[in-house]
Design a protein around this nucleic acid. Sequence first.
RNA 1: CGGGGAGUAGUUCAGUUGGCUAGAACGCCCGGUUUGGGACCGGGAGGUCGCAGGUUCAAGUCCUGUCUCCCCGACCA
Length: 498
Amino acid sequence: MGKQDSAKAIKKLDKLTPRSQNQSKWYQEVVLKTDLADYSPVRGCMVIKPYGYAIWELIQKELDQRIVNMGAKNAYFPIFIPYSFLEKEADHVEGFAPEVATVTHAGGKELEEKLAVRPTSETIIYSMFANWIESYRDLPYKINQWGNVVRWEKRTTPFLRTSEFLWQEGHTLHATKEEANIQVLDALKVYRKFLEDNLSLCVVAGKKTEAEKFAGAEETYTVESLMKDGKALQVGTTHLLSHSFVESFGVDFLDENGDRKTPWATSWGMSTRMIGGLIMAHGDDKGLVLPPRVAPVQIVIIPISKSGDEFKKERETLQRFIVSAVKPALAEVRYEVDWSDNSPGWKFANWEMKGVPIRLEIGAREIKSGELSFAIRFNGEKDSIKIDSLGEWVTQKLAEIGDDMLAAHKEFTAENTREVSSYAEFKEVIKRDRGYVKVMFDQKDSAPESEIKAETKATTRCMPFEEDDIDKGLERATGKCFYSGDEGGAVTLFARAY
RNA sequence: CGGGGAGUAGUUCAGUUGGCUAGAACGCCCGGUUUGGGACCGGGAGGUCGCAGGUUCAAGUCCUGUCUCCCCGACCA
């Protein structure tokens, strides 16, 4: 092996491990090499770096608007919760106790009462609601909080499951159960629409089984998304809490007749896990593929020019061209011009890894012809566009890429949703194809679910809505349970999940 | 938390039965040549070998503890 060969061989090591070769190594490298995040000295916690945080900020901005449009007002509650608060709701503490971090010492002394670092904020929020709600005129009462929570998970992965994560949690109170129910489904609709519009993620909406619902909820709804490796990811949840928490913390109100009533509560949340979903649902061998709406850089411009003094004029011409002819057309767009010293090939590969939706190449050729060369990250399309129509084209193209990515993910999800009628077939499909497996299942007793999980690693993801339409209610079809064979099975999706 | 693997430069790794001033490549900085799919030459900076103890004349290397990461399970947004 010559010197050059060995350098080349080593350089290859610096490249991204192809997704097709080693999924988990790929994921880890994408997160680190694209500068989304870094590990921290504390187990399971990650540092979200500027590129990753920019995605989160774009997510926040858009989602926050939609939440506010549902009538929620933003507020902030403390991260510390008296531990006894968690214990007031038996199911809640039972569900969360194993993963709660607690503060036992502060100010150099042992605390009289230990403090829980919130794993979720229901308890502290409803304890405050008890003071704030007095009359039916105060209802509905809708609060949203952007914050962080801590859950001491046994096994962590950046974005998909971290000890601390950032999220949004909405908490609402309503005069009637019907209203609360509508709120729970409205939030679910907002989540789905948001994920489709902004993250180009196809999701299945549905209701969780008894075994899978939130600790303390009467009903839990979910939006689940299928990752490219055939495993499902719960991207968002909404809970009909009904009277739990509310009763424990003594929240009540006087109705029109002066009668003391208990309001009906809901809560709902989505987290930085969404970013993990983005990576896993859209990424490919070359790295990230970002949907334009949440791409911190939507367009990267690679100037192609010779260096050296004799070409200084050429570079200046190129720069002037970019400033005068290109930049005005990109006024509404997040773009970056990469003037770094790296070679064009390196820049192409690097920005592809970072998932930038559109690349423009601009050199002497483009200046001469008045047509800019472009490449689309998502499908590899390469062509050129007249400089005069650049502005219009960019707006339309970015929207189109978002739509196409969603369409592709919808197709993928449909292709990987399979119906089976027997457990034998179920096991085979889960093992061979993964994806969603649609069955008739009787979920009233949780034992079968844990048996199936133990044997196949697959869990119930949800009981979907009729025709995938949240307004139509859950699928009404019933039949024999594929597992027990008894009547009373309802349409249920299983999958291996993150 | 159980089973397995790993921690040496920013990264990937080498480092012999414990033995001289701990190495390489890539990356980074400086100078120059380059630029349409991961360019090249010359020079340079960068390490208390994860951390804490111990054994020894001598520890990156052996022992104990501990922390973090990766893979597999049980817990989960």
